[in-house]
Amino acid sequence: MSEVASNTIARENLYGLAAEFATTPGIYHAAEEAHSAGYKWFDCLVPFPVHGLDRAMGVKMTILPILVFFGGMLGLTLACCLQIFTNSLEFDIWALIPVVGYQYDVSGKPLLGAAAFVPVAFEMTVLFSALTAVFGTLFLNKLPMFYHPTLKHPALARATDDRFYLVIEARDPKFRLDEVEAFLNSLNPETVIALEK
């Protein structure tokens, strides 16, 4: 179990070491240990979000909700500007550039009918928030990323099926090959795998 193939990979080509676990308590415990041992560049590869694992790893709360809030506000602003400019206004920017809307007179109703502008403003707020949520996640996760050392190793394909992996990266300041190997083995993994860059 402790025979790591790391000696076949040159040190500068080593991405990190991965320990395989078969159960959720196993990976949860391992993540807690890795966090308290002071490793920074480590990750857990899991087939589904294990409840509380992010907190056990010491992952900070994502800024995504804040981005989504501003995305929504942008949508709201754009929707209001769009409706007011196109339906209610006619003016010149610096007396030079004419901005001409199309002022429909419908039964003498006000041109700046705020109530009538609510549905579109609402929809645009939701649309921009949702776009920010999805593309913000992808951006923060640095996806799409079609090449990654953990995708390269055939054994780690089970991370999308039924196995859980703790990966400690070689770029971690505390990374000493023998120490990390011993540390991972102390967690009772199924196996420890060396990952090539």
């Binding site: 990750d43 992010d54 994502t62 996640t137 079609f146």
Partner: peptide, 13 residues
């Protein structure tokens, strides 16, 4: 999109 099941990704996801 190169999803690899990273828990740090799952957290934002």
């Amino acid at each position: 999109l190169g999803w690899r099941g990273s828990m740090r990704h799952w957290h934002r996801y």
